[in-house]
Structures are given as C-alpha cells and as structure tokens.
Write a protein that binds this DNA or RNA. Structure first.
Length: 171
DNA sequence: AATCGTCGTTCTT
DNA sequence: AAGAACGACGATT
C-alpha cells in the first residue's frame, strides 16, 4: 500500500520538472526527461499547504538553475530512505552552495569512512536531486563521477553554480 | 588497464 | 533468512 502523493509540474527554463508531495512534504523530484512512470500531474495543488510547498520548491529549483543560492526549502519527506541513506542525504545538504565534496569526504562525515562506495549508491538513490545537491558530490582527483539524471545535468548544475571543475587534467 | 578492498542495498535462492 | 551480486569509489599493481 503506497502512500498517496500529489504530483505537480514545475516549469523551468530547462524544461518541466515533476514534484511529488506526500503528507509531510516534498518526497521526490524528477528531471524533465525522466518523469516518474505511471503518474499524471494534477492541474493544481489540492491544498493551500501543498501550494505553498510547491512555490518554495519552484523558487529553490529556479534559483539554483540561475546560479543563485536558494532562499528557502520546503519540508522534505525522506521517510523512504534507510538510516544510512538519510545520513548521506543530510550530509549533502551541508555542502555549501557552489562547493563540492568527494564521496570519501561524505563517507567520513557520516562516520563510515570505509563505506565510500555505498555513499555513491545512496547518492543515486537521492529522491530530491538539485535541492539535495547530489551534483556537488564528485569523485577523487577532480573526476566527475556519475549522476542518475545524466552527466550532462551534473555538468550543467555545477557550471551554473560556478563551481570550478578540474576535469581530465590530472594525467 | 586490470584487480582488489570495502560495505549498504537489492536480487536470488 | 542467508548468500551472492552489484555499484555515481579509491588505492594498488
């Protein structure tokens, strides 16, 4: 029995994202090219509370896409994740705007210095990309690592934030 | 370039 | 319930 969620379109200059809200907050955010299969977006928010959350989500997403630090986030519903995954996602939220961390640094930050590979898996399982900035997690030696939404998005997001990418120049 | 260590999650018995 | 396989990694050979 899956928890009921409300899905709303989120137009940006880079296409229409799709945001999913549970009873307690934003539960999932999809990139334009990867809508969650089998869901049809609502025409409008069914409650003032969700309308407010959606406004906050839209503002935050648009801010980041414009290279600006987001002012405010909606509440997140991260109840789907395991303890380990939530710890990783929380750690990613601590990464300052326009900065990056390596998978190893995140692993150390949550007290599992050896579990860096699992950290990568948890990044891929992040239900709210862009706002939970999985794009700011990069591999060691300036390598980009991977990205669930496609590496082009990771580059675009980091570029918009003005992060310095030292790619490929480390042979 | 190929291999190995490492560990949480997911898929198979 | 238990074990094997699989990674958005990193270090070594």
């Amino acid at each position: 029995m899956t928890a009921r969620t409300v899905s709303l379109l989120l137009p940006t200059r880079d296409g229409e994202f799709l945001a999913h809200y549970s009873k307690t907050g934003l539960a999932e955010l999809n990139f334009p090219s990867r809508p969650k299969p089998g869901v049809t977006p609502e025409k409008s928010a069914p409650s003032a509370e969700i309308a407010h959350w959606h406004q906050l989500t839209a503002d935050a997403v648009n801010a980041i896409l414009s290279g600006k630090s987001p002012a405010e986030f909606p509440p997140f519903d991260l109840s789907v994740g395991s303890d380990f995954q939530r710890a990783v996602w929380q750690a990613m939220l601590q990464i300052p705007f326009a900065r990056t961390r390596t998978y190893t640094e995140i692993a150390k930050a949550i007290g599992h210095p050896e579990a860096l590979r699992s950290v990568g898996a948890a990044c891929g399982a992040n239900p709210i990309p862009v706002l939970i900035p999985c794009h700011r997690v990069v591999a060691a030696k300036g390598k980009l690592g991977g990205f669930s939404g496609g590496l082009d998005w990771k580059r675009k997001l980091l570029g918009r934030e003005g992060s310095q990418l030292e790619l490929g120049n480390c042979s």
